[in-house]
Design a protein around this nucleic acid. Structure first.
Lengths: 235, 235
DNA sequence: GATCCGCTGTCGGCCTACTTTCAGGTTTTT
DNA sequence: AAAAACCTGAAAGTAGGCCGACAGCGGATC
């Protein structure tokens, strides 16, 4: 039974015929402490699934040989109920996927942001852990973020964040009290392939600060020449 | 499995078509007790990777034959999951983002400071070592440096250091109780090719002392005619 | 299918913190 | 006492970070 927060490593199988994408996901998952293996074709995926026994699968729908649906089909026929998160091209087969996601599975359109994928994977794992699954609430000082309701509060005050602000804040909170570079934030929160090396991160942080720091001590701190951290203001 | 802090030597492959750079990195790594080999082209890199089986790879993106991404791709297709740290040219701005997103683990722009490269390599090794990797905290007497949070404390007192001060102190602490010459510090902490043969090191040490030595015994000691050490003050 | 509106990202100017140079002072060595 | 090595204040020079203003996009509304 896959169960998030358990002692053993989560076992993830990533299936994508584009090795850089598969590797990207595997790398980030390992960083999270998971065991990740990749497969670059449908056949390979089925082989790997058999020997590796993953707790969760990331499956691209566009594969050269057997397509994603075929892989899923053969997985299910072999009796495994392993949850699957699909990857689809934009304007792809979103409708057909929607039908498949009833059983607790999920999907994401390419290109995606790796933190968003990881968030979905964690959610799916949590749900598949059984009934009465744990809420996920991140907390730093008096700032809380409920990942199920997407409610963010500073003390009692409810904040209204835009999607980007939410994602940046989530990443900062998850990694707190580690200092993150702007490049790390850009690479994790924005879609892969986002060209705009720019000051977007600064800008979003600036907007975030205005929303959450206007009362109390500054939570998001700048580490000049390096990056940002969110943490209880130092004494 | 690469694992930092293990008994066997870390095996590093350095790929750069500029031999002085590749050799520089290899030399510093050997000094750290690692096994390092160099390759000056993409083809050579792939050959070396096959026979040497590195635990980690430093890979320049600008190679004469196959480019860095091509090398990575062929490495991955041959089944190796070895972590890779990219080197990119300064203005290759678009490359910065592409670095991580193409399945590399980290990246650094040229010209870089060798200690910074080594620090990144150690981080990548540490996190690829498994789940819940441990914090890296350097300690000399009652001075501690947390490399994740970048917090430096003298006893309980939190110090606020500039980037250069932080890097110089880290190098001194890592090598403690070895005495280091000013030239060594300059060569390791500043970007290679830094012209300023000046008293910058003295300057930074002077400012560091003011910040960390104003209470308690002097930690950074001058070895006249030779250099500096950081260590518990002798009686 | 036109208009509106909120969100995201770009540009550029300002400001501040940091780095380095310079120069003169102090300590140590011979 | 002279020379060498080191220390450090002040100031110039530079880079990093912040954020106001605005444009483009896309989704929602009528």
């Amino acid at each position: 039974m896959p169960q998030y927060g358990r002692v053993e490593k989560v076992r993830l199988l990533v299936v994508d015929d584009d090795p850089p994408i598969a590797d990207l996901v595997a790398t980030v998952a390992r960083y999270e402490g998971w065991d990740a293996v990749t497969a670059y074709s449908g056949e390979e995926a089925l082989r790997r699934a058999g020997e590796f026994r993953p707790d969760i699968v990331v499956l691209d729908l566009m594969l050269p040989d057997v397509d994603g649906f075929g892989v899923l089909d053969r997985l299910r026929r072999s009796g495994t109920m392993v949850p699957v998160v699909f990857l689809t091209a934009r304007d792809g087969v979103a409708d057909r996927v929607a039908g498949l996601t009833r059983g607790g599975d999920d999907y994401l359109v390419k290109p995606f942001a790796v933190e968003e994928l990881m968030a979905r994977l964690r959610t799916v794992l949590r749900r598949s852990a059984g009934p009465g699954f744990q809420r996920s609430v991140l907390r730093v000082a008096d700032l809380t973020m409920d990942e199920d309701t997407r409610e963010v509060r500073r003390g009692e005050r409810l904040l209204s964040l835009t999607p980007t602000e939410y994602e940046v804040l989530r990443y900062l909170m998850r990694r707190s009290p580690t200092v993150l570079t702007k490049a790390q934030i850009l690479d994790h929160v924005w879609e892969y392939g986002f060209g705009g090396r720019s000051n977007v991160v600064e800008l979003v942080v600036s907007r975030l600060r205005r929303k959450l720091d206007d009362t109390g001590a500054p939570l998001i701190q700048t580490v000049r020449g390096f990056g940002y951290v969110i943490r209880q203001a130092a004494e």
